[in-house]
Design a protein around this nucleic acid. Structure first.
Length: 469
RNA sequence: GUCCCCAUCGUCUAGCCGGCCUAGGACACCGCCCUUUCAAGGCGGCAACACGGGUUCGAAUCCCGUUGGGGACGCCA
């Protein structure tokens, strides 16, 4: 039997990191076993589902490279099918109509809570014959006796007495199906073999198992993966800032870095930390997934992102860099090849956004210099050495880092200056700040014309300082 | 409140079918080295088996309880 997994988000928001990891595990499991990965949009909640959310989810999945073989399926297009199953249950006496009012239900819940009981439907309509023409919901008739056992791939055996379950609503009074019914029908119709989802669904599983049994269908294999908590240990929410996958994209993260970070949350393979997609596929196994919830640690994500920035092909990083430059309003064709910039900056950027922000001076003249850097390094003592170096650089025929380097060290030696005494002023002149890639590389990228221009500007700055005393 | 799940360094985790663990790796943090800046890199350091009972010659590893955390309890998914 071929493996079939699915990712089934409800379109009520963006794709957050928790959902993305569930999708990743599901995708990995399908791909590893040569199976199919299905995307299904659970939009039965007409009130809260939005097309924007659907797009946000698709966008996030696409960015991460989690491609699906089937779908996206929309549950709203399958209402007829759900109704068919509900009728089947009704006809078999596995479900019944209920016309209990919200008020009665609320009162019942209140009473039960006060009595320190678990709030649940009392089954008042189980034996009543509710008029199908009058407003009503349909409830599943849960067995009163026995227990439901789930053999979960990550949670192990979970047993829940059926007395803990109440009769869930499977069809609302407006005729729409509820979650527990639609998932069951879909997973069954789509022949899903492995239901991989967050463990917040573990409590729902016995109900779904009961419905499946009532329908006489085989059970899928369940795997409830632990949740991802925010850095403060609380459930992930908007309050935690950047939890949306596309926000990480915009913040300059590489999709492979996020994927790598996510796969290591709740799963491990010995002491390994960095995995290529192929390695993930080779080593990932649901049975190695932890049971405990884990916290999201953005520091470690940042580290991994830098690992990927440093080790990926420069051309690949450069593509992301160009995008980020574009978002900063810079046209990458107005300066050095982003590949060279990526190569020069890769060791000093934890995100591509940071890399772009620190590379602006390659493409645009700086408006003003960093005050501290300028006052520290562009001092009168630097005037002569800089002027000398400027001429030497100007005479360079081959504007390459090695030649530039020779010019700088040559000048420093002839003046008996420590390299830093010359390199730092030069850096401030060239970039307007005290930090940059190695100065020879920086100058090469800048180009001869631009570099000399900026040195001239810095010389003028120093002269003005001399005059001011 | 009731039920379900969980519990190793600050964080992610290895180990968990008992002895190889004076508990390993990674992030973060601290120190040293390298160094034209910032980084990167190298080396070193700090730091945990939640607690209490058992079982056993022997427990991080098995059992029970306590505490703590998370989840579910909706005509949300």
């Amino acid at each position: 039997m071929t493996v079939r997994t699915r990712f089934a988000p409800s379109p009520t928001g963006y794709l957050h990191v928790g959902g993305a990891r569930t999708a990743l595990f599901s995708w990995l499991h399908a791909r590893k076993h040569g199976g199919h990965f299905i995307l299904r949009i659970e939009d039965t909640d007409l009130e809260r589902s939005t097309p924007e959310s659907v797009n946000a989810i698709l966008e996030g999945m696409a960015w991460l490279g989690l491609d699906y073989d089937e779908g996206p399926f929309f549950q709203t297009r399958r209402f007829d099918r759900y109704d068919e199953v509900i009728k089947e249950l009704l006809a078999a006496g596995q479900a019944y109509r209920c016309d209990c009012s919200k008020e009665r239900l609320d009162a019942l819940r209140g009473r039960q809570m006060r009595n320190k009981q678990k709030p649940r439907y009392d089954g008042r309509c189980r034996a009543r014959d509710v008029d199908p023409e009058q407003p009503h919901v349909v409830r599943f008739r849960t067995p009163l006796e026995g227990a439901t056992v789930i053999e979960d791939l990550v949670q192990g055996r979970v047993v829940l007495p059926n007395s803990e379950l109440d009769d869930v609503i499977v069809r609302r009074s407006d005729g729409s199906p509820t979650y527990n019914l639609s998932v069951v029908v879909d997973d069954m119709d789509m022949e899903v073999t492995h239901v991989i989802r967050g463990d917040d669904h573990l409590n729902n599983t016995p109900r779904q198992v009961q419905i499946l049994r009532a329908l006489g269908k085989p059970l899928p294999v369940y795997a409830h993966v632990p949740m991802i908590l925010g850095e403060d240990g609380a459930r992930l929410s908007k309050r935690h800032g950047a939890v949306s996958v596309v926000q990480y994209r915009d913040a300059g993260f590489l999709p492979e870095a996020l994927l790598n970070y996510l796969v290591r949350l709740g799963w491990s393979h010995g002491d390994d930390e960095v995995f290529t997609l192929d390695e993930m596929l080779e080593f990932f196994d649901l049975s190695d997934v932890n049971k405990a919830a884990s916290r999201f640690d953005s520091e470690k994500l940042l580290w991994l992102n830098q690992v990927y920035i440093k080790s990926s092909a420069p051309e690949h990083v450069a593509r992301h860099l160009s995008e980020q430059l574009g978002r900063l309003g810079i046209d990458p064709t107005t300066g050095p090849d982003p590949v060279g910039v990526a190569l020069a900056q890769r060791e000093r950027a934890k995100t591509v956004l940071e890399m772009a922000e620190n590379s602006v001076y390659f493409y645009q003249d700086y408006d003003e210099m960093d005050v501290r850097a300028a006052s520290k390094h562009l001092r009168p003592v630097a005037l002569e050495p800089m002027a000398l170096l400027r001429d030497r650089l100007a005479s360079l025929g081959d504007w390459s880092a090695p030649r530039i380097h020779d010019a700088i060290t040559g000048t420093a030696e002839s003046l008996h200056l420590k390299l830093g005494k010359l390199a730092q002023p030069l850096r401030v002149a060239a970039t307007g700040r005290g930090v940059s890639p190695p100065i020879d590389v920086t100058l090469e990228l800048l180009g001869k014309e631009r570099a000399l221009q900026r040195i001239d500007g810095a010389l003028a700055y120093i002269r003005a300082r001399v005059e001011q005393g």
